[in-house]
Computed example of a mutant assay.
Amino acid sequence: MTITDLTTGQDPSTDQASSPGERAVGTVVVAGVGGVIGRHVAIEHARLGHRVIGLSRRAPSDLPDGVEHRAVDLADPDRGALADVGDVTHLVFGAYVEAGPPAELVAPNVALLRGALDVAQAGGHLEHVTLYQGGKAYGAHLGGFKTPAKEDDPRLLAPNFYYAQEDVLRERGARDGFAVTMLRPEAVLGYATGNPMNLLMAVAVYGTLCAAVGVPLAFPGSRAAYEALYQSTDAELLARATVWAGRSPNADGQVFNVTNGDQYRWANLWPLLAEDFGVDVGHPLTAPLVDTMSDKEPVWQRLVERHGLRPTPWADLVQWPFADFIWNSGFDNVSSTVKLRQAGFGDCLDSEQRYLDLLARLRADRVIPPRGATA
């Protein structure tokens, strides 16, 4: 399927010659290359012929083709870790550490950003940094918030590591002469090994297990969440937006919401998912998945062995508390993407169709079993 950029009329999946004023891309460093965002950004830059260096503490088991890896602990980095790389022009920061309550997330995640900057700036030619934020910038983790959320909405009083990272990045950019862009996705859909905070994988594993044991696909959350508006960001679309932001002067110093450009209700998507998994639709049932899935590892292992699936550890497949939070958030989650489109990036996707496309890809890649699989 070809996606056309609504602003330029061009296919954004192919590398176009730089327009006047666009910055050239030399070597790109992706911090957090093992995550779903970092992985897809690395793939996109490598596909476009850029040199890509992926940073993480351990090399991913399926490092994308064309991507070099350097084992770096960003909390305590060796500033000379990229001494043989040459000029690094772009840093994409997708690293994250889970450290407890919101106030305790600030210091360690700011430290990761500082470490990545130190490593990327060692060559002295850094031109652009992309930082990812998300719905927490608007208070999506606290309850209902103003919708559609816009990039100039005021900050919240509650502690938030996004704010602290942005302040550090703007200060360093102003001091050292590189441009910065903050991108705010929501519910990123994609696949990366060992990256369990991923709604796509929650849908995939939950639906697979319902089908394998022969029970209806009941929405495992609140009826309010079932009926509320929600939105997603495809990981490939976000990667294309990242490439655009790294090149375009229209993105310099800006914050942009990045979603697929539409919204959906689980009430409308759920029957499509049930049909895709070959099961009946169940009624919404507030049954925490952390409890429901507590004894399902043996079932999953039988599926892996019987159907030759990728042997991903159960703990690395899905973070069930994350899925429980999303499917019990009974309020609209909508962000405006007008600013992004006006700045020059108009890529969009049909989210409902994208779920089905990505589930088909997971089956083809043997991440989940084929339709009709039993345990």
Results as ranks from 00 to 15, higher is better:
T14H: 11
T14S: 11
S18Q: 10
V25T: 14
V25G: 08
G26F: 03
G32E: 03
V33N: 02
G35C: 01
I43L: 10
A46W: 06
R47V: 15
G49C: 09
H50Y: 02
L63F: 04
P64K: 00
P64T: 04
V67L: 03
E68S: 13
L82S: 07
A83D: 12
V85M: 02
D87S: 14
Y96E: 05
A99R: 10
P102Y: 13
V106E: 11
V106C: 09
A107N: 11
N109C: 01
N109D: 07
Q121Y: 05
Q121T: 10
G134Y: 04
K136I: 05
A137K: 04
G139H: 08
A140K: 01
H141N: 09
P148H: 08
A149N: 00
A149I: 07
D153Q: 05
A158N: 08
N160P: 04
N160M: 02
Y162I: 01
A164S: 07
Q165N: 11
A174R: 15
D176E: 14
L189N: 10
A192F: 03
M197H: 11
L200F: 09
V203N: 06
A204M: 03
T208F: 08
T208S: 13
G214R: 06
P216H: 13
A218N: 05
G221F: 00
S222Q: 02
A224S: 10
A224L: 05
A239S: 08
R240A: 11
A241Y: 06
W244V: 00
S248F: 04
S248P: 06
N250H: 10
N250D: 12
G253Y: 10
V255K: 12
V255Q: 09
N257A: 08
N257V: 01
T259N: 04
T259A: 03
N260P: 02
Q263R: 15
Q263S: 14
N268H: 13
L269I: 12
P271H: 07
E275K: 14
V279H: 01
D280V: 11
V281P: 04
T286G: 12
A287F: 14
L289R: 08
D295M: 13
D295H: 15
K296F: 14
K296I: 08
R302H: 13
L303S: 00
E305G: 07
P311R: 14
P311V: 05
D316M: 07
D316K: 09
F322Q: 08
I326S: 04
W327P: 11
W327I: 09
N328F: 07
N328C: 07
N333A: 15
K339Y: 06
R341H: 13
A343Q: 09
G344R: 03
D347V: 15
D347K: 15
L349H: 04
D350V: 13
Q353D: 14
Q353A: 15
L356Q: 04
D357M: 09
L358H: 09
A360I: 10
L362S: 03
R363W: 06
R366F: 07
V367R: 10
R371E: 08
